[in-house]
Amino acid sequence: MRLEYPSNIKIVKVPCTGRVDIIHMLEAFEGGADGVCLVGCLEGDCHFLTGNIRARKRVEYAKQLLEESGIGKDRLVMYNLSAAEGQRFAQIAREMTEKIRGLGPNPIKAVISRQQTAETKRLYADS
């Protein structure tokens, strides 16, 4: 199909979205991800019967945790599509990128960046 989608999306393959736990989503943000998008099979089409339904519930829970911790719930999204929907995947990738761009970078990166800038300035001032 040779479809294009934004190159800043990093794909992490899992056997089923049911494998994705709360901690995986949180650690992605700790690692500096600006947004996380879970892409599961269509509901009712899970090879493991309910993996994508359980993932949806976990995403809802993880959103609460992200909101509490100040990262914001809107940075985590789940989509359901079939393996035959390449076009839709590319479209979702574009939508997600635009949405996250609108929200700005992961707030912890902004703080780390400010701290690094301050440190750099201090080092220059010292030298």
């Binding site: 949180l26 943000f29 100040g70």
Partner: peptide, 15 residues
């Protein structure tokens, strides 16, 4: 692990 991650995220955000 989840609570530790939440605390780290909050503290990182607050610097």
């Amino acid at each position: 692990a989840v609570l530790a991650s939440e605390i780290r995220l909050r503290r990182a955000k607050e610097g």
